[in-house]
Structure formats: structure tokens, C-alpha cells
């Protein structure tokens, strides 16, 4: 059997992923995370009298802490299976990727293990985040003056 023919056979038998359902689930779950975040921001502003910018900073800290804690407690990976990328795209996903790498490699030494693998998954986010920010700033300077 030729390769192309075999690919067709595999595609015919392998069940297709329900992309629409995954997208809707991810949208709703990501939205839910954002909604909870908004409640926390409002809570911080009313209870502690913080400005919206300061409350946003505290929110990020809280979200990162909770995501790391849930990763260590073995909840997060199971939730991602159910919530799809709704939990991976927000800040929670970044914290989760760093925490899970750290947990995995802590036994391989602080430098050779944890240190060098800490950003194994998150490294791309940082690198391409910085590059796209740089490009966007240039575009803004050119267009916006």
C-alpha cells in the first residue's frame, strides 16, 4: 500500500476530534477564569481600596499562586483534559507549565535539572512574546508617530 493511500485509511478509521465542541468548551472555561479574575479585581478594589492597575497586579500574583498550587496537588492536568485550552491560554497555563516542569526535574539537580528545564515549555512563550511585543512597538511607532 502506498503512503498516501495508507494516510487515507488511517484518517477514515481514526475518529475525528470534535473541534467545534473543544473550541466552545475552551471559550467558556477561559471566559469563566476571566470572570473569576474580574470578581477578584473588583473585590480587591472595594475591600482594600486599590486602584484598578494595582488590583490587576495582585490578581496576576493570586492566579499564578493558585495555578502552581493546583499543579502540585495533581488537579490541574485532569482539569485541562476537561476544560481543554481554556485553562492553558490564560496566565494559569504559563504558571502551570513552569510548575509542572519544576516538579518533574527537581530530582535531576537544582542547576542541571530544575534550572535548565524550568522554562522547557514556557520558554517559547517568553521568547516569541518578547519578539512580537518588539515588532508591535515598532509598528506602533511607525504608524502612531
Amino acid at each position: 500500500m502506498e503512503k498516501e493511500e495508507y494516510k487515507k485509511l488511517v484518517k477514515k478509521i481514526s475518529p475525528a476530534e470534535n473541534k467545534l465542541k473543544n473550541i466552545i468548551v475552551a471559550f467558556l472555561m477561559g471566559g469563566a477564569v476571566a470572570l473569576i479574575g474580574e470578581f477578584i479585581v473588583c473585590g480587591l478594589m472595594t475591600i482594600f481600596g486599590l486602584s484598578r492597575v494595582d488590583a490587576g497586579g495582585w490578581l496576576v500574583l493570586i492566579v499564578i499562586f493558585v495555578a502552581c498550587l493546583l499543579t502540585a496537588l495533581n488537579f490541574f492536568d485532569n482539569w485541562v483534559m476537561r476544560c481543554k485550552c481554556g485553562l492553558i491560554i490564560p496566565t494559569t497555563g504559563f504558571a502551570h507549565s513552569v510548575a509542572s516542569s519544576a516538579l518533574d526535574y527537581r530530582n535531576d539537580g537544582l542547576i542541571t535539572g530544575l534550572g535548565s528545564n524550568f522554562f522547557k515549555l514556557a520558554g517559547s512563550v517568553i521568547l516569541y512574546g518578547v519578539i512580537s511585543a518588539f515588532i508591535l512597538v515598532i509598528v506602533r511607532v511607525i504608524i502612531g508617530g
Partner: peptide, 17 residues
């Protein structure tokens, strides 16, 4: 998982296959 896929606690959605 650690060697071939993602860190153990990392939750990446997997396909049915």
C-alpha cells in the same frame, strides 16, 4: 510521559488516538 511527551503534571489535551 516525561521522556516522550510533557512533564508529568502538565495537562495537555490529548486526541482519541
Amino acid at each position: 510521559e516525561k521522556q516522550f511527551r510533557y512533564p508529568v503534571e502538565y495537562g495537555a489535551p490529548k486526541p482519541h488516538t
